Amino acid sequence: MQINRVFVNSYRAVCSAALNAEDLFKVVCTQKSGIKTSTTFYADKTVGIGIVKVDLEKSLLEEIGTVLKNSNLDNFEETLLVIGSSVGGMRLSEEKYFQDNSYKNINPALHVIDSISYKISQKYTFKDDLSFSTACTSSANALGYAYEVISKGVYKNVLVVGYDTLCKTTVGGFYALGVLSANRCKPFDKNRDGMNVAEGLGILLLQNKQIDTSVEFCGVGYSSDAFHMTQPNPEGAKKAMQNALTCKGLQPEDISYINAHGTGTKANDSSEISAIESLFGKSVPVSSTKSITGHTLGAAGALEAILSVVSLQKQIIMPNSNLEYPEAEGMNYVLKAEEKEINYILSNSFAFGGNNTSLLFGTIK
């Protein structure tokens, strides 16, 4: 039973395309990508990749400080911290290993998934913390959990952090799966050839009280289809979106826009667009922002939630960049930024193992 409404009251974003949320929304709308061709991680492997131009670990604490400064809070002592990350502190461990040619000096506290909350807790005091690692749905699930505990009256304030950095292990893992493109990815295009792995940071302060700039977090839908270790199932994606609609008692025609997971891989794109067409038909506007930001893995859900919130605040639908030859003809792919009345947005995140999460955001009613 829902006791409280849930509002997004502050947010910060850092990724390869921009160093703040306002600039990120602008580059998405003007289709200026942060993806660059790189051989940084493996000299014999050329990949399109999204590398942040600043120290992401330093930015993590700075951006949390900015959220606190911009909030109605004096501190975080009555706030729950929820982290979403796919790889945790793997980059630091990897750097230490190659530096020492040994694993013995790796600090376990800086390696595991809750290494991010460990770092944050060195500077800020939270009521408690929790970490999610569910691959590419990590921060979407963190946001879903935050929605649950606020709506049920367990917490009044929850700070959600989506965070992932890149390292050889991460890049090499996706390369071994054969899903990395050497160029900027092309979500939903017939000629797509893979994704762009990237790093990023997304922070959202969720509260049970509305402020002037609030966007409502209206619900979350989950599914776990367990269809295949890496291949998605359209029915799982469809179920997650259906469950999100149920939270607010909405019908498919109530959705103004879908911010798709849209990675640019053949398996994901065809599965997701099939699920969208099955539930919504072909008229709902759809786009993916990953040709601009890259796929930021565990941070993707948080970053795309922020973009959805800004989209609602500005009443502008974001375009699907780098789309020339749509695979599914007749779908309403957004090809350029469009001013339009937007009431509700679904933001999708899907992960290996059939873990699917769909977040529902809306204007204040």
Rank of each mutant, 00 (worst) to 15 (best):
E235M: 07
T293N: 11
A244E: 04
G281D: 12
A237L: 10
G262E: 06
L346P: 01
P285T: 13
T265Y: 11
T230I: 15
S256R: 04
N322C: 08
L359P: 10
A260L: 09
S349V: 01
N320L: 12
Q251F: 12
N332T: 05
K248F: 03
I306W: 04
L346Q: 11
V286R: 02
T265F: 09
G301I: 12
T289H: 05
N259V: 10
V309R: 00
S291F: 02
N243P: 12
I255K: 00
I364W: 03
S347R: 00
S358V: 02
E277H: 13
Y325R: 05
T265R: 10
N320G: 14
G362W: 01
K340L: 00
G294R: 11
Q313T: 05
G281T: 08
G362S: 14
L245P: 13
A244D: 00
I342G: 01
T246P: 00
G281A: 07
I345T: 13
A244P: 08
P252R: 10
E339D: 04
Y344K: 06
I342Y: 02
S287I: 09
K336H: 13
L312N: 03
L359E: 01
A328I: 01
T263H: 09
K314G: 00
L335G: 02
P234G: 07
F350R: 08
F361D: 03
S321C: 15
V334T: 10
A244Y: 01
E339K: 15
I258R: 04
F350K: 00
T357K: 03
Q313P: 02
N355W: 00
S278H: 07
S308V: 06
L297K: 15
F280T: 08
N233S: 11
I317F: 00
G353E: 04
L312T: 14
S287M: 08
E304V: 13
G362V: 02
T296Q: 07
A260H: 01
K238L: 07
N332L: 03
H261Y: 15
L335C: 05
I316A: 04
L279M: 14
T265N: 11
L323Q: 06
N322F: 11
D269N: 12
L323R: 08
N348S: 14
G298R: 03
L346D: 00
S287Y: 13
L279S: 10
I276M: 11
A300W: 11
L303V: 15
N243F: 05
S311A: 15
Y333A: 04
N356L: 02
E324N: 12
S321Y: 15
Q231N: 12
N348T: 06
A267Y: 08
A300T: 15
S308P: 12
S283Y: 10
Q315P: 06
S271G: 09
G353W: 07
N268P: 09
I255L: 14
K238I: 01
Q315L: 04
I316S: 02
L323T: 12
K266L: 14
N355P: 01
A244K: 05
T263M: 09
T265K: 14
S291P: 04
